[in-house]
Amino acid sequence: MGTCNFKASTGLDCPGCGMQRAIAALLKGNIWESIQLYPGLIPMLFTFSLLIFHLIFNFKDGAKYLKFSFIITSAIIVISYLIKIITQYRIQFH
């Protein structure tokens, strides 16, 4: 697996850390494990597949749905990252 530059230099997780492990878990079929490792992966894959199908087939309201799924995905990524950072800090302090 590729190492994270940010984590190597600071010791903190970056917002993308855990994505490779989540992909590996998803490829093995462990959906719950991949959600625990990186909750934004599955909405992200959904958004990408929606984007590709929308660009090919031109759905009628595809742009609207893409917008909504993008906003949900980015919110999940940001919130899960904040939660991860806060729990890491707690572990460090105790």
Binding site: P15, G16, T47, F70, T73
Partner: peptide, 10 residues
């Protein structure tokens, strides 16, 4: 626009 959310991670 959509790829920018993934690319911000790395």
């Amino acid at each position: 626009g959509i790829i920018s959310i993934v690319a911000f991670c790395c």
